[in-house]
Amino acid sequence: MGLFFPTRHVKPIFVGSYGNHLTRGMYVFHLDIDNGELIKKKFYKSMTNPTAIFKRERFIYVCYKNNTGRNTDGGLWQYATMDLQFGLAGKVYYQGKTYMDSYVNEDRTFAYAVDYYNGEVVTIPILKQKIVKVTQCIKHEGHSIDPKRQSEPHPHFIDETPDHQRMVVCDLGTDEIVVYTIGEKGKLTRDEENTFKMKPGSGPKKIVFSPNGQFAYVLNELSNTVCVYRYDNAQFTFVQEVDTYPKDEFAKESLAGDIVLSQSGDYLFASNRGHDSVGVFEVNQETGKLEYIEFVDTDENPRAMIMVDDRWLIVASQKGGTLETYELKREESKGVLFETHFNYPVGEPVCLIEGRVYDKK
């Protein structure tokens, strides 16, 4: 206990918001890991929209949307973080490109990013702890069957495989999971043997791997499904496909928003924009298969989620303009995800990530 108040055990949460000219930017919240309460601590205004956040040690990497068309807009920005403070460490514009996602390898020697609008994957060296410039740009080619969303390539997400041997990109426009080998100086080479197609019209948006690295879960935005694959030495073997919500009970349009695995790997969550819910699945950790448990209602357009402390699910609803927290209770017999009734208004939150642990009085 403190002198007047009990000590709060909190974790910082970084949130990116589109908002308007007054509310657009980066927010820092503290999540009370004892009760799930969100406490706003800091706001950093930005001129353009943050689209994604990636964290590696004390640095966070923010993808910004190009709102003006200028070559010095958009790009990938790198910040050093200390408690609640942000300090700009580096930025890469590369002709004003808008990146939808980024990844930095574990030893922080290379950053990678995907350009949804121009169908490109880029490599960015990190020298003296700072991102420098784009040294490789790979253009995706192809299309799929949706005339509006799949007339051209749209790489949406990039990550490293659990064995650290490949990079993997979800291309929503071509219905492909594109696998890349990693060569000298971080150079990527398309691995045609292990790259594979999803069902036409799926729209793969994000991939997550099980904690043991044996299974991969692909969220498909357009078909509102999750596909399960067994992963072994760069090869993906199909296991299962499930809907993200009960489609026979909801006739209106919905698009999959985000996918999150619990840190223990026993539950998977998929958000639905339109159905405005989070689908909850139990994971068979031996087979990788998913069993649908329930869905919980959210605010309008749940776009992004994170799981904190293997207990708290934070949902960012873009149109609803809120951050909401839900508690994962494994011991309950009916349902496992419960509202905490803690929420905080934020103008169009679209991305979020967990920070480091601090104890605050």
Rank of each mutant, 00 (worst) to 15 (best):
F43L: 02
H140N: 04
E249N: 04
D299M: 09
L222G: 03
V228T: 05
H140D: 03
I126R: 04
V260R: 15
K289T: 12
N224C: 07
G257F: 11
N118I: 12
Y27P: 11
E253D: 06
K199R: 14
N49L: 07
S264F: 02
E221L: 14
T135G: 00
Q165R: 07
K247F: 03
R330S: 08
H143Y: 15
L88P: 00
L268K: 09
G203I: 15
K139N: 15
G119F: 03
A251N: 15
F5S: 08
L255F: 06
D73L: 13
E286S: 09
F14D: 01
D297Q: 10
L352A: 05
A52R: 07
V218Y: 00
N49P: 05
E57W: 03
T322R: 09
K206T: 06
T7N: 11
M167T: 00
L3Y: 12
E300H: 03
T244S: 02
L76T: 02
T298V: 09
T181R: 04
G213T: 06
V239H: 08
E332Y: 04
E282F: 11
K128D: 00
E241A: 06
D32E: 02
R24W: 12
F110H: 03
V242L: 14
P345M: 14
P349F: 08
V92R: 00
I33E: 10
K41G: 03
Q165Y: 04
Q150I: 12
L22P: 05
I33N: 05
K206M: 09
N67M: 03
G19H: 11
T98G: 15
